[in-house]
Every structure is written in structure tokens, then in C-alpha cells.
Design a protein around this nucleic acid. Structure first.
Lengths: 152, 152
DNA sequence: TAAACTGTAACATTTTTTATTACTAAATAA
DNA sequence: TTATTTAGTAATAAAAAATGTTACAGTTTA
């Protein structure tokens, strides 16, 4: 058995890039926009489809704008529309805009650096998750927003 | 633009199977146990390596016990040891014991069923995530606990 | 100039995750 | 046989993350 001091490591880890509803919400928004490429859809309207607060829709739209995927028009009759060709936008790109990576999580606290396992566990998990990301990315790369949207 | 009533759907969805630190903690526990296949390691000792509360370690161990992966001994000098051959236990099995599936999340509220997109979005996400799981599972299937443990 | 929008900040609430305390029961060693 | 160390577990607390709300300034259009 390894022996090490059982000090308490307070410091937390910032690996976290947890999944929330961000991807689902973003793809929902984009699917709607894709259905009406010539209309500016309001956040209120989109929110009504997702069943979500319009402010949260606008926040995701702000993210999409930062990536130049959509454009918005302020003022009356304003709203948001797609700014890219949906056949060229892949789910991989959408994924990357909403998550950094896919992973199976890390323990919250820093593992004990005096333990051989604790010292390397995150590094080894990183490697595992990196492989995982490659596989998932390859899959998502093969699906365009148009493909996804055509399923509806 | 689709038109639909903007009622508010309160009902939530139970898809959720979010990732926390469970997988990381479980694999950490199993790696330690694998390093000392003949010792009963206490939850206190394991907790000292993960830097986690011992009660939480015992909870994960309870889960492992339910899957007959480890066995425990109560009382003084008690603890937990592996009950399976680590070369035959795959990360896929460990993954399945701690998560049901991998996914990129769902919006929290039920989407609007009066909207063609809202009505089908979760079904289409499900299909996407199912493919994802297959790829990830195939990867994890190829790695045994022994393989993982040998990296340390 | 009123109305309908976006953009954003600030704050509140809810949900999830992690931590703690406290206790019972079991096994061992002295 | 008794003190000690351990698992097992329930109940509760605290922390963190996600989601929701309110409010309001700025923009555009009719």
C-alpha cells in the first residue's frame, strides 16, 4: 500500500466543462433559423419553441454571433438569422462552440500528489478523453446543420 | 414561420444522466485496488488519495459491490478489494456502472409540441447521442482496468 | 413618437453535486 | 470480553452550477 500524508488539498481543479442544455439549445435555435433562412426570428419566438426564457436564448445567440454563425437585427421586426450556409456548418463546429470537449468528468478536488495514482490520474484521464473526443468529433464532423434540420 | 401557442410547459424531462465526478472517482478507486489486489483498502485510505470525503468513497464502493466488482470486509482491518480479474474488466463496464450514456444534454424543459422542431428535437438528439455512445463504448471496450492501471 | 425588438447586467431560484455528522453493526486484536 | 477500527447508511448542510427573472438602455421601424 502506498503511504502518504493525508493532508487536505483545498485547491480545486478547473478542468470542468460540463454539459448543460447548451448544445441542445443551440442546435434547436439553429434548426429553427435554418427552416426560415430569410426571416429574422425573434428571441421570444425561438424561446416559445424551446420553452425557455428569451434572455437565455439571446445569450446563446450572442455566442453564435461571436462565432459569426448568425446575424441579428435590433429594433422593431428585428431578430436573428443564419449567416452561413447550413450545408457547410457541421455539428462538430456547433459542439465546439458550446463545449470545449467531451469527457467523463474529473474528481472535484486535486488528488493527492504524494500518491502515485493520485499524481497521474488526471493526466491519464485526459489522454483517455482526448481519444474520446477524436471519435465523437469525427462523427459530428460528418453531419451538417442541413442534414440535421432535414430530419424534421 | 411556424405559428403556435406560447403556453408554458411546466413538465420536465427525465432524460438527464449527467456526468459528475463519478466515473473519475470510480476508476481511481479501482486503480488503487488493482495496485494491491491482496489488501483490503479502507475508505479512509482511498479517500486520502482522491482527496474526497470517505463517505462518498463508500457510496461508490456500494455501487461497485452491487455490480460484484469488489468485495468488502467490515470491522477492524476491514476494507475493500477487487473481486474480479482486472484484465477482464473493461472501462466500458465501469462507464456503464457510473453513467447510463454519454450525451450532449437536452434542454431542461419540454419543448413546444406544437412546433415541428420542438416536437421532434429530443427524438433526433437521442438518435445522434445513440451513435455517439456506440463509438465511445467501442473505445472503452478495448481498454481493461489492467491496461489503465499499468499506466501508473 | 410609440412599439417591438436586441443586448446585457444584476439578481433570484432551482437543481445537482459534494461534504459532513451521526449513528449502527461487524470484526479484530489486545 | 472489551476497546478499537472499520463498513454501511441516513439525514442534513453547504457549495456549485444551471436556469429563470426583472429591469432597463439602445436601436429600428412604422
Amino acid at each position: 500500500m502506498f503511504s502518504y500524508n493525508k493532508t487536505h488539498y483545498i485547491c480545486n481543479i478547473f478542468y470542468y466543462s460540463m454539459l448543460s442544455g447548451k448544445f441542445a439549445i443551440t442546435i434547436h435555435i439553429l434548426t429553427l433559423l435554418n427552416k426560415f433562412p430569410n426571416d429574422y426570428l425573434s428571441s421570444e419566438y425561438i424561446a416559445g419553441s424551446i420553452n425557455l426564457n428569451p434572455v437565455l436564448v439571446r445569450k446563446e445567440i450572442a455566442n453564435l454571433k461571436a462565432h459569426h454563425i448568425v446575424e441579428s437585427k435590433e429594433g422593431k421586426n428585428g431578430g436573428t438569422k443564419l449567416a452561413v450556409d447550413s450545408s457547410k456548418l457541421t455539428l462538430k463546429e456547433i459542439f465546439e462552440m458550446t463545449f470545449e470537449t467531451i469527457n467523463l468528468g474529473y474528481a472535484k478536488n486535486q488528488p493527492n500528489p504524494d500518491c502515485p495514482v493520485g499524481k497521474k490520474i488526471n493526466q491519464n484521464l485526459d489522454a483517455l478523453y482526448a481519444d474520446m473526443n477524436q471519435k465523437v468529433s469525427a462523427q459530428l464532423q460528418g453531419i451538417s446543420l442541413e442534414d440535421f434540420s432535414n430530419q424534421f
